[in-house]
Each structure stands twice: as C-alpha cells, then as structure tokens.
Amino acid sequence: MKRTVSLLFIAALAALLLYVVANMPPMGDPANPTATHVIPRYLENAEEETHTENVITGIILNYRGYDTMGEVTVIFCALAAVLAVLGRERRGAIEGFVDRSEVVSSTIVRTMVRFMVPFILLFSLYTIFHGESSPGGGFQGGAIIGGSMIVFTTIFGLAESSRRVPQRIRAALEGAAVMGFFLVGALGLLGGGEFLTYAWPKVAPGLQPSLVVWLTILVEVGIGLGGAMVLTSILFAMIREEEIATAS
C-alpha cells in the first residue's frame, strides 16, 4: 500500500516536472527573455561597471551580491551546525581515527603527498587570485585548499595537521571571512550604491578601477580562506576521536 502510494506520487511528480520542462523556452534560443534582457545587459556593461574581466565573477560578486551573501551564510551555518552537534576540539593536540589506522602509509605515499600539497595550495591561490579574470574564484579555491587539507590529514594524521592549522587560526579566519564579506557589502550601501557594489557615488563618484579590482580580490580571498577553514574544521570535527590528555 505504502509502496503503491509513493510510486504513484513519484510518477505524478515526474509527469508534472516533465510537462514543465517540455514547456520551457528552448535552451539557447535567442528569443528567450533571459537572452533579450539580462544576458546582453551583463555582457555589455559588466566589464565597465564591475571592472572584472570574468563576467561570472562580476555577476556573483556584484550584481547578485545578495545571492552570494546567502551562500556565505549557508556555509557558515553548516559549520555552526556541525560544531553544535560534534563540538569543537579543545585547543591542543587531538587524535582521529586516521592516526590509529593499522595500515601504515608507505614512504612513497608520504613523499608524494609532501611533494604535491604545496603545488595544490599554489593552484588554489591561483584560482582565488585570478577569479576576476579567469574561471574560478573564492569558493573553488577554498574547496581546493580544503581538498589539500584532506589529503594531508589522511596521510599524516589529525594530530599533525591540526598542529599545522591550529584552531585559533581557523576560528579567527572563519569569522573574519564572513564579517569581511558583510563589511565590504555594507560599504556599497553606505556609499550610496547597492549591496556589494564597489561603486560609491556618495563618497567618490568615480572610484579608481584598480581599487574596485582590489576590493573584488579581497572578497574572493575572504571567501576562499573562510571556506577552506570551514571545510577543514568540519573534517576535523568529524574524524576527531579523543583529545590527548596532555593537551591544554
């Protein structure tokens, strides 16, 4: 009975969704409303208004500032939820199950990880700093830093990697990233513009393009480092097993 009802429900939902998809404007049609109003406006004015060469970054970090604010808040809330359930480690050394694994990682793996991690970090910095001129940006770069932390933690253990990136650094960066984002966003409002626009008509009618670019990069770096620390903290909270008694 239950099965039949859920199957019927899924079938009805699928039919509805397929009907809607069939009635959507065809993808890539130049007569679509998005293609006649929104896209031309972005493509024609984005570089001039946002001073970013990569239009995507201009849209995410300028035109759609409120969307990005929601995303930043969601990521921060995810961390807060994980920490509320699992708890933040106390300051000092901690141990996770990777530290007590019976399989010892071989010299080849350790050497490769030691060799690779700096390059992964370099690539993530490239992704973050070139977000305004090429694909990528804060979120992507931050996730790559988080990935490198995962690789490092898997091989060298939680104790070692939490010593490298201690909690006080993570907590400070997580908070600072969110605060910095809201601060730069609010500066746009105070300056007489919109949230997260870097044009401040009241303060300075013609803001230097270079300053706008630097502010964009600042926001990217904030999102990148904050996101990376959030991912690292979530990983640490999840694999943490016990505190080492000598700590704190």
Partner: peptide, 22 residues
C-alpha cells in the same frame, strides 16, 4: 568552467571524503 571547477573540487573531492568519514 566555473561550475566545472566547483563540481570537481566540492562534488568529487570534499563531499566524497565527508561521506566516507560518515
């Protein structure tokens, strides 16, 4: 390409590890 980068880093990388840990 922006989404491709995000999908590769977050979808294929980070969430997989978090699922494995869980």
């Amino acid at each position: 390409p922006d989404l491709a980068l995000t999908e590769a880093a977050v979808g294929a990388g980070v969430t997989t590890v978090l699922f494995v840990v869980t």
